[in-house]
Design a protein around this nucleic acid. Sequence first.
RNA 1: GGGCGGUUAGCUCAGUUGGUUAGAGCGCCUGCCUUACAAGCAGGAGGCCACUGGUUCGAGUCCAGUACCGCCCACCA
Length: 889
Amino acid sequence: MALEKVYEPQQFEPHWAKWWVEEGLFVASTDGSKPPFSLVVPPPNVTGALHMGHMYEIAQIDITMRWRRMQGYNVLWLPGTDHASIATEMLVARQLRDQGIEPRDIGREKFLEHAWAWKEKYGGTIVNQFKRIGASCDWTRERFTMDAGLSRAVREAFVRLYEKGLIYRGEYLINWCPGCGTAVSDLEVVYSEQQGHLWHIRYPVTGSDEHVVVATTRPETMLGDTAIAVNPKDERYRHLWNKTVTLPLVGRQLVVIRDELADPEFGTGVVKVTPAHDPNDFEAGKRHDLEFITVMDEQARMNEKAGEFAGLDRFEARKQIVKRLNDQGLIEKIEDYTNNIGSCQRCKSIVEPRVSTQWFIRTKPLAEPSIKAVETGEIEIIPDQRRRNYFEWMRNIRDWCISRQLWWGHRIPAWYCADCGEVIVTREDPASCGKCGGEKIEQDQDVLDTWFSSGLWPFSTMGWPDETEDLKLFYPTSLLNTGFDILFFWVARMIMLGIEMAGDVPFRQVYIHGLVRDADKQKMSKTKGNVIDPIEMTDKYGTDAVRFALVVAAGQGSDVVLSEERIAGGRTFANKIWNAARFIFLSLEKSGADPWSPEDPDGFVPEAATGNGRPSLEDRWMFSRLNEVAGLVNSHIEKYRYHEAANLLYHFFWHEFCDWYVELKKLSFREDSGLTPEWKNMLAAMERALRLLHPVMPFITEELWQRLTTGATGRPRSIALSTYPSEDPTLTDKEAERQVELLREIIAALRNLRAEMGIPPKTQLEGICYGHRAEVAEVVTEQAAAVSRLANVKLTAQSGAAPQGKAMHHGKDFDLQLELPAEETKTLRERLAKQLKPLEKARDSSQRQLGNEQFLSKAPPHVVASIRKKLADYESQIKRIRETLSSLQ
RNA sequence: GGGCGGUUAGCUCAGUUGGUUAGAGCGCCUGCCUUACAAGCAGGAGGCCACUGGUUCGAGUCCAGUACCGCCCACCA
């Protein structure tokens, strides 16, 4: 029964983590008897390590879910399972190569076998890690597998879009990653500035001695030039119109086209046109019907079209070409130049524009209703500012390239007939060509972009395209809680596909949280080496501590700055809770009573104290506060102000429950008293406080709650299944709150006096409190024991003002007089003078305001009245302090 | 180039709808091993709320501009 002196979360956290999942505490019942609350959870990145960002996300999500569950909702998590195709493919390929196996040699089937084995092993590890950091959902309840349920949904979605003409196959210049060997979407390309050069190259004008100078940052692509362009408004080059120039090193004749592509202000105003290797040139090439010459292969090596440079890597080719040009005197000059280089998000290789045939989704028709859904508030994006980014992106959306040249992923459900060339897109694998009946058909080798299947997540996981009970009850889901980084990748696509496929928005609210940064505000990343490992921190400080530190540190939508000190701070809070409980249990044992909790914890009101008609002041106060705090916490979590909820709970528990309630309660502890009403009140208060804290500190509250409620009949199996306290305004006890406030003021003033006068804590003093209100004397008399214990002063009460020169402290409602062992007038004078300053400042400002006609006529009456009241208080205090000061002369 | 955010105590950050002595954690100073907790207790110091103007009876809070920091998107041969 007895608790250890120091809180050791390792002893119970793993137990509860396992238990919650095994008991299925957070699996929806789907019986429809309770309001549904479903939540889409971002996929853990199975290919990477668990990081603080995950932990932060899980903490917020878990708080929401526990809170909703305790409020009686029928909750459902839709935990994502990462299946990032490129990342998985890369990792598996790397693993195979480490074993000396070249993926290309073993073929698709074998490769996928390896991938599955790896996925199972590694994925399981990640899922276990998620459990350890406190995620209460069952991550093993996978509603998704690559080859089962989702596969069907993916195919259904693809076919529907195809049949509606929203998916097409076409030849375009796409972003090609030579490292991954696949096409990537615009979003998967990250740009960074790099130092490079701008080469000015002379292209001889055919049939004259003249040459034109073109500037390029990529000389190696010149082998694919099929034109040069000048701006039609650029008079300098009018004479070139209709002429041709000779492409150096190759000898091809290039027409001179007139096109806006050439900016007269940039470089020489003449630009080479390489339609197969540059997006702008590609467009120009289509406008002018130019030839598209691809000079590189899929590994970005120069191909046979590159003539003598064939086989060279693109960067080596650049060097060689520049050298050859230089030898021929065709380099006019070389400038230093900073350009933006696009790299692959995954493998960091420099992306190469490449002409190829790919599958695309026509996004404009999908974007329109998606924009509308957010505009009309059908989907709420929180915080609000993020809406702008969303609109901006959606309105300028470009078609989405969804095919990937990988093995790991959902295969595109398209077949090609070798006989007639027919393209067959169907739900079932076809046996023959529907057009010519030929049996030589072959499925497209490509797989889908991982975000295509991810975009179906909110409904595919619920059994779509079947009309399941889950879908009826839980779709649209209530909330998506995620980071800004995948707003476009994932959120936007879920919205587009949700509206199109499932006929309704995928979620009602999107809460976007900030990033987790280190103490130097740097984004945590492995390459920077500033990663705080959540598992390590969890081992060291406990899951509750890490979660609390994360949640309390960030305002709505802003970043979290995390340091180990903060996490240590979370642990001190847990330790505080632990020790408060420990003390209660120890004292209870001394009282000879067993742990007890009320049958109806929510209906419990404090019982009258022994030998008294009403509950003690501290009990009335505590239950009033518990009630108010419940109201505030509920409102904070509702509005995603997690940090405010956490902060409030921290202060309430530490500085009200422990510092004052427990301290005051100590006075009523008696050995072998048995289970007195005072004890019942305290145990019920503790029980309620634990429930309030539970979403934020799940493990420690579960452990303590289980101990506290042992033996209670009819209690739920877990605190997570109990109810969350809510506010009942009729239970607020303003009188008790006011009186405890007064008591705290008096004790604080006495402690302050003692400290500043340098009186040792053990010296007991006698004192008189002169109350200006009847209530003061009442409180002082009734709480004399409390004052004695908490300030070590035997205080008696008198009414009215203190006799001239007797008081040493002047409060708003009372004066205090202390019997000091020695004369301390100097210290006392300094003390009083110090107090005078801010009071005078406040009085002046109040006077200024009340002297202002405008203020009196325009400010609301209650504000004017409150200033008047304050001014009177200030003046009264100042007057009394002055009197005492002058008598101390 | 377009857009968004930030600037409050030594550090990291809160501060709901404008309401008057601006808060917390950590750090710092003083005193305490007080029959839960030294991961603790009591007390204390420390702020022209970036700058300039405006709106208002009243501005950390609303508006405009300036400076610095950060992020996102787009483009640049």
